[in-house]
């Protein structure tokens, strides 16, 4: 048995209480017979940083979308904090994303017409948190990522690295169970990428925050607690 499979199986055997996130035999087929995911199972523990690596087209972004309830699998189940989210109706998913998940994408993460502070406060706005409270929390989140001096800047006035840190602050502002990051360093130079990864590690250590990071950047791999590699829609057994 491979290391990854052994880990997943162990977590599965330990039951839902132990795993924050579980994917069980997740399959995604597209018309014309394309199999983006072919029976993927994995489990993520609370406070863990899991890296999902693989080449372009290996299915890692599709997996991330399904784990993040942005897309539905053709078959299989996804469990988040003991709830089977694949069985939830479509209308329940925005609220689930809002309360339990945070997202960081590769680039163009921010709403251009909103300041850094307003971007971070966006999930709280959708949660109908009173404005004053939302702004306080957003300010604290920006402080946590070292951007307290950039709160009123528009995205266009921030560097790429600063924009990604604002995105991380936004992903964390609603205290989600899980942050999903899709190539978060993909548009950054190596120095800025290192700083962002250091930030994620610090947040994981300080807050016990769980991250699932899709990447093909070896630098990101080094920052993760555990790596799974995807090939042709499957998790590749380690050699």
């Amino acid at each position: 048995m491979t290391k990854e499979m052994a880990t997943s199986s162990r977590v599965l055997e330990q039951g839902l209480d132990e795993a924050l996130l579980m994917a069980v035999n997740v399959t995604k087929h597209y018309p014309m017979g394309v199999r983006a995911l072919d029976g993927v199972s994995l489990a993520v523990r609370r406070g863990e940083i899991l890296g999902i690596m693989g080449r372009s087209g290996s299915g890692k972004s599709t997996l991330l979308h399904i784990l993040g309830c942005l897309d539905r699998p053709t078959a299989g189940e996804v469990w988040i904090e003991g709830t089977e989210v694949t069985g939830l109706p479509e209308a329940a998913l925005p609220a689930l994303r809002l309360r339990k998940l945070g997202f960081v994408f590769q680039s163009h993460n921010l709403v251009p017409s909103l300041t850094a502070l307003e971007n971070v406060a966006l999930p709280l706005r959708y949660l109908r948190v009173p404005v004053r409270r939302a702004m306080e929390k957003a300010r604290a989140a920006l402080e946590a990522v070292g951007l307290s001096d950039r709160v009123h800047h528009l995205p266009v006035q921030l560097s790429g690295g600063q924009q990604q840190r604002v995105a991380v602050a936004r992903a964390l502002v609603n205290d989600p169970a899980l942050v999903l990051a899709d190539e978060p360093t993909g548009a950054l130079d190596s120095q800025t990428a290192r700083e962002l990864l250091a930030l994620m590690r610090r947040l994981s250590a300080e807050r016990g925050q769980t991250f699932v990071v899709v990447t093909h950047d070896p630098l990101v791999g080094q920052a993760c607690d555990r790596i799974v590699t995807m090939v042709d829609g499957r998790i590749r057994p380690a050699v």
Binding site: A95, L98, Y126
Partner: peptide, 16 residues
Amino acid sequence: TREIGIKKAIGASRWD
């Protein structure tokens, strides 16, 4: 469109 995608990803409902 991209902005709408991000808003939906972070939890904006259709009504929002």
